[in-house]
């Protein structure tokens, strides 16, 4: 009971603190503003973990159902080598290879069909349609074709990331305004020059949008594909076997690694986006 009350007290305190924090008038103090903007979500996250821990202890939830965060953390620190091996198999091999190939080929095909309006009109609706399909279902077929090792997972990732990239790049290449294109024409610039100096930069926000979508898709694709057969290493393999052995804390440890890897991957893409599309209104900060 004390655990539950403690959880409740912590929650109310954190909630109250957050309400106070967002009401603070920072004025022109940028450092303080940024600090508050970081502190508020941090407090919210901390609250979730504290409530999780206290409620699990207070209600004595069996750890087979939901282990407390402290237990998961202990498991993570105790089994780093296994986690690292799984991470290397799934993320460094399958996800990265598939991501680079899928995004790269989507981009190249978009450039190729850019010159033919006929292909564009034909491929865009199809690409949009395919993006809505449960592509993850091709995983068993890929495992049959490319074997159990990471190549089949990379193939799934390629297929999953290809279409978002294709559709977004084609859309992005059409984003440059007519005025700017006419200007390039009056400079007598070639197709390549127009592409490199005007249209690709104009398409960058769209391309990065696809890269961000794909960063999460890739991880999902690789892990789910592992349910259909793997060598005895990999995050998906570990999750499905440890569930069977009721080692739920190990599963949560894998989830933590996956979440961390996914967030880091997404964050990295977002950082590169900020550096490349510094001119875009959604990135530009300045004084408002």
């Amino acid at each position: 009971m004390t655990w539950l009350i403690a959880a409740l007290v912590f929650w109310i305190t954190a909630w109250w603190l957050n309400q106070r924090l967002v009401a603070v008038d920072t004025g022109s103090n940028m450092v303080m503003k940024r600090g508050i903007n970081l502190l508020v979500p941090f407090l919210f996250g901390l609250t979730i973990f504290v409530i999780w821990e206290f409620v699990v202890r207070g209600l004595q939830v069996p750890s087979v159902l939901l282990p407390p965060p402290s237990m998961i953390w202990e498991r993570i620190t105790n089994s780093l080598p296994i986690l690292w091996a799984d991470f290397r198999q799934t993320f460094l091999k399958a996800v990265l290879a598939g991501y680079v190939l899928g995004c790269g080929s989507g981009f190249l095909v978009a450039l190729l069909i850019d010159r033919s309006p006929f292909l564009q009109r034909g491929l865009l609706p199809l690409g949009n349609f395919v993006s809505a399909l449960p592509i993850i279902g091709v995983a068993p077929i890929m495992v049959m074709w490319f074997g159990f090792d990471w190549q089949s997972k990379a193939a799934v990732v390629v297929i999953m990331t290809f279409f978002p990239m294709l559709v977004n790049t084609v859309e992005g290449l059409a984003a440059a305004g007519n005025m700017e294109r006419d200007l390039m024409r009056t400079y007598a610039s070639s197709w390549w020059q127009t592409l490199l100096k005007l249209r690709l930069p104009a398409a960058a926000p769209f391309i990065f949008n696809a890269l961000k979508i794909n960063s999460t898709l890739a991880l999902i694709g690789a892990i789910v594909a592992e349910f259909f057969g793997t060598p005895i290493v990999g995050m998906g393999f570990r999750i499905s076997t440890e569930v069977g052995r009721m080692n739920i804390d190990m599963v949560w440890a894998e989830i933590a690694v996956a979440a961390l890897a996914g967030s880091a991957f997404y964050g990295l893409v977002a950082l590169v986006e900020r550096a490349v599309t510094f001119w875009h209104p959604s990135v530009r900060t300045g004084t408002r």
Partner: peptide, 19 residues
């Protein structure tokens, strides 16, 4: 707005399909 939104985004980086 300030506290939930970042976590909503983080929640999607967890590959739920995988778990």
């Amino acid at each position: 707005d300030k506290s939930v939104m970042p976590w909503v985004i983080t929640s999607q980086t967890i590959p739920i399909l995988a778990i």
